[in-house]
Design a protein around this nucleic acid. Sequence first.
DNA 1: TCCGTATACTTTGCGATGCAAAGTGAGGTG
DNA 2: CACCTCACTTTGCATCGCAAAGTATACGGA
Lengths: 126, 126
Amino acid sequence: MPKTDANHAPFAYDGLDRVIHEKSRLGLMTSLMAHPKGLAFADLKQLCGLTDGNLSRHLQVLQEAGLVEVTKGYEGNRPHTSCRLTKAGRRRFLDYLAVLEGLVRDAAKAAGKEASTLSRLGMLPT
Amino acid sequence: MPKTDANHAPFAYDGLDRVIHEKSRLGLMTSLMAHPKGLAFADLKQLCGLTDGNLSRHLQVLQEAGLVEVTKGYEGNRPHTSCRLTKAGRRRFLDYLAVLEGLVRDAAKAAGKEASTLSRLGMLPT
DNA sequence: TCCGTATACTTTGCGATGCAAAGTGAGGTG
DNA sequence: CACCTCACTTTGCATCGCAAAGTATACGGA
């Protein structure tokens, strides 16, 4: 049971996991989702546009939360860190996404109610 | 122009406005989107499941960012604070939502690639 | 009229967090 | 052996969210 009563607080969205709901970490999770076999530190850095320090920190957080598995090893003779989603990580991310989708739907519906330009949603010229 | 090069950092999502991208504030924005005529302090508090203190703080942030307009007045002889989205607030929230939608799509696509249960995601219309 | 309670917020304090900059260490290269 | 690069980690700080305490006014009895 959620901490806040959904019946009385329909916009609390407390299913939005703090650990996941963070710009950088969202990117990381999505990247890892797209690459179930794992990604290297350097690749993630590129994909998510993060600095070394920040990536390191965020990975640590995700790992401590049990969402990703970080494997430190050596490729040739250089250190090589590889990351992949854990099963729990994948599941929790999907749960998170479901909530997020609900939010987007709520908002879109709200926007549509009296919108002059619903067109913005979904057909934004990126 | 985004700070991070989208060509090389497709998962940076730097369009996710920090002010909006916050659990509580997302709820507030969505609530206000659904009630374009404005909402009272107490209503927002209920809808978003926030304490007085937190609501006050978040509204202040949103107001300073020019996303919401806060009107303090008196209803009868009790203080009555009413909030509504500004035009800019509405626009920026829609922009934010567009990015968010993109993210959900990315993730859903990634999940679908090798997913056993896309069904979890309420069957996103790709 | 005084006291207590309720409403309607605001302010304060602090622990957690994200981010940038500096640090570490192992390889290669001239 | 000095120097640079790669691959991360650690540190420091400034910001932020959150809960608890504070302020102010109104109402309802005794």
